[in-house]
Design a binder for these strands. Structure first.
Lengths: 237, 237
DNA sequence: GTCTATATACGGATAGAC
DNA sequence: GTCTATCCGTATATAGAC
């Protein structure tokens, strides 16, 4: 049995990640366009809004969600909503940009905590899975709605997708160069790893139904990839 | 280098799969609700409609597509459109149901062409990849819009997803029982295979940019999985 | 700060001319 | 069979009362 460098519980104890924190940052980054003065109130309402957006979008897509529906389910009037964003499109962008920041901040930091390529791969896989677990709805939203963004935001979404893949490419390449991993197609392997990680939040309902925890999944994904990379006794890493 | 049981070119030569064929079937299955008498004309227009729906939906989602937009881009008037479907919702269902039929018909037939578990796994992976290559836009549409279906169709979508996974579970289980594969978690492994197959049509742009052909991808995916299953010389299969 | 009421545009859908 | 014109509901967004 492969030993994880850190469990989800440990991760959560160290990093404070969640919708509340996300919304606090969101408020800070959009202070000029959000009218509300009282900090607490603003964060609380913003969280209600974002949470509702994520839930409705998961079922109907962001396009399919009307602001009336959002207003009813978040129990904020139409007028009140417009104190928090200028337009429906802007709301989409706000959520999107905030989520992107999280990944950019966390992933490299956690990778740096290990020296060996195998260790870094474990850190990266765990960090990505745990982050997507803490913010499942956000990640799911990203995947489904990212394609509907336009202009600059569209480019940023593609760039984010690419940049996380590059982290994996670099680790795999370093592992091959250092003799830890056997020779493989680096970009294809990184791509496969990414697809496994995405499956976790795209098929959340499935894994929940089967009572697979994120720790279970991390162990499985890592052993799957390590075997391909020819890492014999991943158990002792 | 792993030898594929069949290439994409060979697959296409045997099976006639494409949007035209899909639309011909679609017309046959909805003969009562489609007003148009002339067979050829109906198929041609239906294909224009479906093709346009898939393109617009890929960018904006089905919800985000207005029928006016569909009318303009397909160069059929609003009135004409309504000769081919009764409502926007019905159009979605028509496309969805037709695509489902394809998978249910093809996958089991191709799997049956091989005896060994390893052989069946190759057949299943190739068939799934080639089918999704022939109908990329349809598969992409399925994944993105399947979540927005309601009622019976929602259930059917989940059932389809599950049924293809079961094909893989069965093959892997049989391979383990027969000693061809080493012991693994069957459901997790099948799930991982499925996620690799989905990546092909979900990230089509990426692989096209990198000039990875579907044959390349099939070889990679199979070698990745075979190594996990402990199949030593997949090259000679 | 939050609400209700409303302006304005756009959505799906249909009727009826050609 | 196809088109144009139009109905009518609902969408986003805003103004102004409280």
């Amino acid at each position: 049995m492969l030993a994880l460098p850190l469990t989800y519980a440990e991760f959560r104890a160290v990093e404070s990640i969640g919708l509340t924190e996300l919304c606090r940052d969101m408020l800070a980054d959009n202070r000029q366009s959000i009218q509300i003065k009282k900090e607490d109130l603003a964060v609380r309402n913003l969280e209600r809004i974002v949470k509702t957006v994520l839930i409705i979008s998961q079922r109907q897509g962001f396009h399919g969600m009307s602001l009336r529906q959002l207003s009813q389910q978040s129990r904020l009037s139409m007028g009140a909503l417009y104190n928090y964003f200028g337009s429906k499109e802007e709301l989409l962008q706000m959520i999107y940009r905030q989520g992107q920041k999280q990944i950019h901040q966390l992933l490299p930091a956690w990778i740096a905590r290990s020296q060996s390529a195998a260790g870094q791969l474990m850190q990266a896989v765990c960090c990505h899975l745990y982050l997507s677990e803490a913010l499942v709805h956000v990640f799911y939203f990203f995947f489904m709605e990212g394609k509907h963004l336009r202009g600059v935001d569209q480019k940023k979404a593609v760039a984010l997708e690419r940049s996380t893949e590059i982290y994996f490419e670099e680790i795999i390449q370093r592992g091959m160069d250092g003799g830890e991993f056997q020779a493989v197609d680096v970009s294809m392997t990184a791509s496969a790893v990414k697809s496994l990680l995405q499956d976790w939040y795209l098929k959340r309902y499935k894994y929940r139904a089967r009572k697979i925890s994120v720790d279970d999944y991390a162990r499985f994904a890592l052993s799957f990839v390590f075997r391909y990379l020819g890492v014999r006794d991943a158990a002792t890493l």
